[in-house]
Simulated assay, not measured.
Amino acid sequence: MCSYCGCRDISLIGRFMTEHEEIVNVAGVLHRAVGGGDAGEVGTALDHTLAHLHPHTVAEERGLFAVLRRNPDFTDHVDRLCAEHRRLDDLAERIRAGETDLVDTFYDELREHIDKEDNGLFPAAAIELDGPDWVEAIELTPDEGPHAHGHPHAHPH
Score class of each variant (00 low, 15 high):
residue 145 G to W: 05
residue 88 L to R: 04
residue 65 F to A: 02
residue 129 L to R: 08
residue 98 G to V: 15
residue 71 N to W: 06
residue 134 W to V: 11
residue 117 E to V: 08
residue 107 Y to T: 15
residue 135 V to C: 08
residue 84 E to P: 01
residue 132 P to L: 10
residue 132 P to E: 10
residue 92 A to I: 04
residue 125 A to V: 05
residue 80 R to A: 09
residue 70 R to E: 10
residue 126 A to Y: 03
residue 137 A to H: 05
residue 87 R to G: 01
residue 147 H to F: 14
residue 89 D to I: 01
residue 123 P to A: 10
residue 133 D to E: 11
residue 124 A to T: 10
residue 76 D to T: 10
residue 135 V to R: 09
residue 70 R to L: 08
residue 132 P to Q: 10
residue 71 N to D: 08
residue 66 A to W: 13
residue 92 A to T: 01
residue 125 A to I: 00
residue 96 R to A: 02
residue 82 C to L: 15
residue 56 H to V: 10
residue 145 G to R: 08
residue 142 P to R: 11
residue 57 T to V: 06
residue 88 L to T: 00
residue 125 A to L: 02
residue 64 L to D: 00
residue 77 H to G: 08
residue 100 T to P: 05
residue 99 E to R: 09
residue 128 E to Y: 09
residue 75 T to P: 09
residue 62 R to F: 08
residue 105 T to P: 06
residue 144 E to N: 14
residue 101 D to L: 10
residue 58 V to H: 04
residue 72 P to G: 05
residue 63 G to I: 00
residue 133 D to N: 13
residue 76 D to S: 05
residue 87 R to T: 02
residue 57 T to H: 03
residue 125 A to D: 01
residue 142 P to N: 15
residue 125 A to W: 03
residue 99 E to K: 10
residue 86 R to N: 14
residue 60 E to A: 02
residue 87 R to F: 00
residue 64 L to H: 00
residue 59 A to Y: 01
residue 72 P to C: 02
residue 146 P to M: 04
residue 146 P to K: 02
residue 78 V to T: 00
residue 130 D to N: 13
residue 76 D to E: 11
